[in-house]
Design a binder for these strands. Structure first.
Lengths: 328, 328
DNA sequence: ATAATGATTGCAATCGATTGCAAAGGGGTG
DNA sequence: CACCCCTTTGCAATCGATTGCAATCATTAT
């Protein structure tokens, strides 16, 4: 591979002149430039980005830390992040942690040392002291999907409002006994969705029945047995709000497996608007969250941070109801 | 951030000694090491990987070039690639190209210059002269999913064999008029699947009816209207082999929309074994390809290449039949 | 003719590591 | 006591760029 010096030698100038010709900031004589460009072309010179980054203290590389790209919400988020990274001349490093703290710390350790310019975290764990340490070191950090505190840059969706919309819609369709299949409450977004659900019921004067609320649904089962349990306990219900589309799909399957119909006997509404929402039968009415936009917004925020615009603030994106056929 | 020199100064030794203490290859006096480690701890020294990479000519970073992470086959592949990258101390750069040649070239340009140690390509386009140029420059390259030629490192699945299994299974279940919903033939994997389909029919003495074969199914529609067309033309058939699970799902929807039942009237078999295969009703019998393993194998191959083991050869992974309920 | 001005260009330091070579110091042997 | 060898350590070059400072040269004003 040809280096700056090789080009300089061939063009009969100094390395500085070649560098300046390349950068374009400083005036270089027209004729000299010609010679330099000719030499560059002849040698097929490409600048060594490592050397450049070392000198400039910037790599134009960012890391995206997510639990698992196989979780169906993340491909869209990731794609959004990568697209805006690329548009701004950044490359993206993808890190799956499975929410494993040691993996996350390993990645941080490895990528910190003047190597990536910033991080986006989408992990849901509540303990994030190690991330705060990063921030304290002055490394740009953006949180995505989960919120952390009010003085960090975060990009989330309005989970409370979304959940409210879901419950409100069910109620507007005449449902009153609405079960809620939720995720574990140590993840803030599930706490918020629970909040929104409760708010909607309260505002409509519907009593909250704790027997209809299932939190701690684990990721493997993802609601199937939770739903079965609810049904088999004989608790009366006319609707189910599932805190994610996969949970809604499993709820539908469970309901059908007991010989009941959706939405005839029980209406089901989800949260996400994934592809599977149109594949399940009946197609799933759900609260859409702008997954792709979460990615773009988070990356935009991170890049602003890297470029020195300090404007720590939470950004909350909106959700909207997508009506399909799973609610009567 | 503390540098090697800072540590050296604090420990009262030279930078070389610190470096050697860190690397561990060369003997350093026990007492000196103690001092060095103490200084490292006190300053929270972390080596600057950029400087190290520049000196060593190696970054321990690889690029994964795929069409689109939102295509449901890629999350698993990507996860496989990243997991084995991480296990081997590499980090992974993710690049989505949408099969756009200029995006792909941009990425290659940007990442080539002594910046990433190697590439994995999963793009399907037939023109790959720019990639061959990369290889010619001595940069490690592995192809994945699509095959390129016989003297490159490639990781693919046995598409011919998989398609054969699919058709063979349908025939064993008594089907004889088997439609084939396939992708565009300028992608080699669809050519191979077509081959396997034809082979199976031939071996069982079933004539090939070209009216039952639809290639060029585009990605938006993904088989829905193709299937509708086939049905509406009144061509008799008792089974459909779709060259991907999404196509199979759309075929099922199309068949149902005409009032026919799956598998009662028409059996359907897919190719992939994605999550959606268990969500559609009836659940989809399909040919499973080891998406995760494709990723791990490709990354393993790439890393061997980077480490200097030159052993260019195609690796073909096996598929297997997953029986569910869409075939009678 | 001389000084001042501005445009080009090169020198050399710098970013933060790694490593070959040589020097210094200690111990053992003849 | 002199010599040699081995261990430990430091010096300085190197990886490939960028950039402040100074030098050179031509041009213009006085």
């Amino acid at each position: 591979m040809a280096t700056l010096k090789d080009v300089a030698r061939l063009a009969g100038v100094s390395a500085s002149t070649v560098s300046r010709t390349l950068s374009g900031n400083i005036h270089v004589d027209e004729q000299t430039q010609q010679k330099v460009w000719a030499a560059i072309k002849e040698l097929k010179y490409k600048p060594n980005i490592l050397a450049k980054s070392l000198k400039e203290g910037r790599t134009n590389t960012v890391a995206l830390i997510i639990p698992n790209i196989r979780n169906p919400i993340f491909p869209a988020v990731t794609r959004g992040a990568e697209d805006t990274a690329r548009k701004n001349g950044f490359t993206l490093i993808l890190c799956n942690t499975d929410e494993d703290l040691s993996v996350e710390k390993d990645y941080i350790d490895k990528l910190t040392n003047r190597w990536v310019d910033g991080f986006i975290f989408a992990t849901a764990r509540d303990d994030s002291s190690h991330i705060m340490e990063l921030k304290a070191q002055g490394i740009p950090v953006v949180f995505m999907i989960r919120s952390i505190d009010n003085h960090s840059d975060t990009v989330t969706v309005d989970n409370r409002g979304g959940a409210y919309k879901a419950a409100d819609y069910l109620i507007s369709r005449g449902c009153t006994k609405i079960a809620f299949i939720n995720g574990p409450l140590d993840i803030d977004l599930y706490r918020q969705r629970l909040d929104g659900y409760k708010n909607a019921l309260k505002e409509h004067g519907i009593p909250i029945d704790d027997r209809l609320i299932v939190n701690d649904v684990n990721d493997q089962d993802n609601g199937y047995h939770a739903m079965l349990n609810l049904l088999d306990k004989g608790i009366k219900m006319d609707a189910v709000f599932a805190a994610s589309d996969p949970k809604a799909v499993n709820a539908i399957k469970a309901i059908k497996s007991r010989g009941l119909s959706v939405p005839g006997d029980i209406s089901v509404i989800g949260f996400d608007d994934l592809d599977i929402a149109t594949i399940i039968e009946p197609s799933l009415t759900t609260i859409a969250q702008p997954a792709y936009d979460i990615g773009t917004t988070a990356m935009d925020t991170l890049i602003r941070l890297i470029d020195g615009h300090k404007n720590a603030m939470p950004i909350v994106l909106d959700t909207h109801l997508v009506v399909r056929q799973s609610v009567r």
